[in-house]
Design a protein around this nucleic acid. Structure first.
Lengths: 338, 338
DNA sequence: GTTTTTTTCCAAAGCGCTTTGGATAAGGCT
DNA sequence: AGCCTTATCCAAAGCGCTTTGGAAAAAAAC
């Protein structure tokens, strides 16, 4: 069932049917009704390839799945994707995922761009100075960045206030009397890692506490690295009494390390973890419940989707820059310093 | 740069250029060379929408992102997707993700099918009798199922030997002298849950051990449910000495419950977890290292991709059915019963 | 009643590619 | 040389939709 045969059924021209269906004004309400009803009844659905060819718009945005073993392919990926996809689905826009085979994303970009597979792309986890935004703007491919980078090219981005979150978390721990506070941070070179460390350092400075670099770890966020880092931190003397974990996965590892050291979370050691909010890892239902810096990544995904839509509608990128606050949620894992 | 202007540049017809590029025999090697070189030099890349319209093939397969809060949107999703996508990328096939807003997937299928967005779809986490395969085969949409279902309609599927894996794990625990073995299983109604329970029960029966339904839990796999279930199991008397966990996430929760009960994993209580193999959750590097039933879900994704390709190439679905073995990897979390 | 405007619809020309059905030139055969 | 293949290439017709530039009918203005 295509446009032409639908038109024949109705005794109308394809032009009119197309216009009726797409809400153009040059068609009377009565025929629009008639067309809509017939389309529904006969189950007519426009062929997307044909429409895409005719309009030049693809109706799809691309996202890249980080390479295997990369920093960025974590449990948050599917949540982010899910938020993004559900926003886009409302506008009948597909999201196509492109796996990256290596760390070098540039060829993958060219492929997506030059074959006109997508109208825009979404990129995540930027480095402090991220070349991808240069490549994409050179290619004139609209894009939105999840995170922030400092490269001097105007572009759409959405980031959370990692610095503010870590400042608040660290300050709170200091107020509780903690002086030795360890930081399980992300890989060096990433913007979010830099921001987090900056927030942490600023709070320490404000509290008159010197930074001990032995209490800062940079690595990807896994259960294992959380464990290893916490183990090292807890072996230093004086023993740290608080740990800030960069992700829930790290926090789980750190939790085990605390237990292994014969210590108790929420009594001997406090912990605040960054929480992207996964349905299968609920900070509020852990034992003890986990204090977190909360920032739902699914919502970020859906907001990024919104931004991409505005981008495609012609909104100037300068207006599409946002920083979301990070909410400090205090639970049982934080307590006064022993 | 499109086909026509490339052809003009070369002084050839679009027909010939198209054929040269697509490897048809009706063109001499010398001109094929010339065309290929020019295409490369001028950066020509065919417009996918046009090609799709002309060929009728879309060059895309659909996957569904389970609804928010659903059983199936877990940490494994991105790994599976990643495996699938990297296999498809080799054939220049896109994978488009469709979010499911509700538990009812049928409208989403119709959307994908009737608008010809994809050539095939991949579905996961089937129920014991899964209506989705009926819907898809009624729609004549090629599809591959990750998992198994019992619905009497021939179709392509790939599943792991959940029953065998759980039989082996349970048997091994019995050999180690455990008599009270708890099972943290998936939601009732899912095929994999049924298979796992069947394997577990069969092994108990073979070992002459009666099933205690108080030691079987059915729920989605989260850190929290793992904790809660393990807590309940450990409160029964006589206390179970071994736990089989359905996922690494459940295992982490169960691990904490064991610790909370003042017990030690790998000494007082043994555990074997099903491991889909996540880069950020490595059983081999946990402390103690975790015994697992190992089955890399990324590999499954890429194999499903392979199957979809064969499906599209016209392979009969009867030949596209596979069960993968589940490997029992023994580590420190299993020990003889105390 | 005629002219102008507005409303409503349509014919036809793309969008960029593939593919069918020749046409032409080159080579092989008797 | 003449005839038949075979190897190359091309013109043109789609694929199913959108959109431009009218045309016919209806309504409004004079």
């Amino acid at each position: 069932m295509n446009l032409k045969s639908l038109a024949e059924q109705l005794g109308l021209s394809p032009t009119t049917v197309s216009r009726a269906l797409n809400g153009y004004p040059e068609v009377s309400d009565s025929t629009r009704q008639r067309v809509a009803e017939a389309a529904m009844r006969l189950g007519y659905r426009p062929n997307v390839s044909a429409r895409r060819l005719a309009t030049g718009r693809v109706g799809a945005v691309g996202v890249f799945l980080p390479a295997q073993g990369s920093v960025a392919l974590g449990p948050h990926t599917s949540e982010f994707l899910s938020g993004l996809a559900s926003r886009m689905a409302h506008e009948e826009i597909d999201i196509v995922v492109s796996p990256l085979e290596t760390e070098d994303e540039v060829p993958a970009y060219h492929r997506l761009v030059s074959t006109k597979r997508v109208d825009a792309v979404v990129i995540s986890s930027p480095a402090i100075s991220d070349q991808r935004v240069k490549v994409l703007s050179d290619l004139k491919m609209p894009f939105a960045l999840h995170g922030r980078t400092d490269i001097g090219i105007p572009h759409a981005w959405l980031d959370i206030d990692n610095q503010g979150g870590h400042y608040a978390a660290t300050s709170h721990l200091i107020e509780l009397g903690h002086r030795r506070i360890a930081l399980i941070n992300g890989p060096a070179g990433m913007t979010f890692s830099a921001h987090r460390e900056a927030g942490y350092r600023a709070a320490l400075a404000a509290g008159g506490i010197a930074v001990d670099t032995a209490l800062i770890g940079n690595d990807i966020f896994t259960d294992e690295t959380g464990f290893r880092q916490a183990e090292l931190f807890l072996a230093t003397r004086p023993r740290p009494t608080a740990i800030i974990a960069g992700s829930m996965m790290s926090a789980l590892g750190a939790f085990r390390a605390i237990r292994s050291a014969g210590l108790e979370l929420g009594r001997d050691v406090s912990m605040i973890a960054h929480d992207d909010v996964f349905p299968y890892l609920n900070a509020d239902r852990m034992v003890p419940t986990m204090s977190t810096m909360r920032s739902p990544i699914r919502d970020a995904g859906s907001r990024i989707g919104e931004m991409v839509l505005q981008l495609l509608a012609g909104a100037p990128v300068e207006q599409l820059c946002e920083v979301w606050p990070v909410e400090l949620v205090l639970r049982q894992s934080t307590c006064p310093a022993p």
